[in-house]
């Protein structure tokens, strides 16, 4: 498990700052204090929220536990954290698998998909018109990390190949996920 925790990942923080001098700098302090690596700051100065705050989007790199400390540090400093890291799974993908899904252990298939670490299964719909021993099909909805669509699909092809299942991929060429 220590390996997982040492993994540096990219996170997006969405903050809302009070429109006062020095606020932006103050919001970055906890990130530096807790060892986060700043990737980009998007300061939407002209785009004030209805309550008069200024939205700021900060992309950082950190290990998962450091990231937790950063979010805590920001809250302690009185900074509004609107969204923390939920951008991680930002691409929705649908695939269909067909074949001896049930005989080839559907739950193992799911575990293998989750094991790719770039995607998580958010929905499954199974169609087994002839019962569990015959050919059945299932639609999987996956949430993939942004930019990892190709990697996730490559993993799906491998799983389908190994279990002799037919995979219908989504059309992803030309920037459409």
């Amino acid at each position: 498990m220590s390996e997982v925790h040492n993994d540096v990942q990219a996170y997006t923080l969405r903050l809302e700052l009070v429109d006062e001098p020095g606020e932006l700098l103050r919001s970055l302090q906890p990130i530096a204090d807790h060892g986060g690596n700043l990737l980009s700051i998007f300061h939407e100065r002209g785009n004030v929220t209805p309550r008069g705050y200024i939205p700021v989007e900060v992309d950082i790199e950190a290990t998962p536990d450091r990231f937790d400390n950063i979010v805590e540090g920001l809250s302690d400093a009185g900074i509004n954290v609107i969204q923390a890291g939920t951008e991680r799974y930002s691409e929705r993908l649908t695939i269909i698998l067909s074949g001896h899904l049930i005989e080839t252990d559907l739950s193992d298939t799911l575990t293998q998909i989750e094991a790719t670490r770039n995607a998580t299964v958010t929905d499954i719909s199974l169609s087994a018109p002839a019962g569990s021993i015959d050919v059945s099909s299932a639609r999987f909805q996956l949430a993939a990390e942004s930019g990892s669509t190709e990697k996730v699909l490559a993993a799906m092809r491998e799983i389908a190949d190994e279990k002799d299942l037919q995979l219908v991929e989504p059309l992803t060429v030309g920037g459409r996920a």
Partner: peptide, 25 residues
């Protein structure tokens, strides 16, 4: 050749369909 009617049904439930697509990129 290996596609079944139920695969197309599954696609349709999600507002999608299946087509034979060529991708050149």
């Amino acid at each position: 050749q290996e596609l079944s009617g139920s695969m197309l049904d599954l696609a349709q439930e999600d507002g999608q369909t299946i087509r034979l697509i060529v991708e050149v990129a």
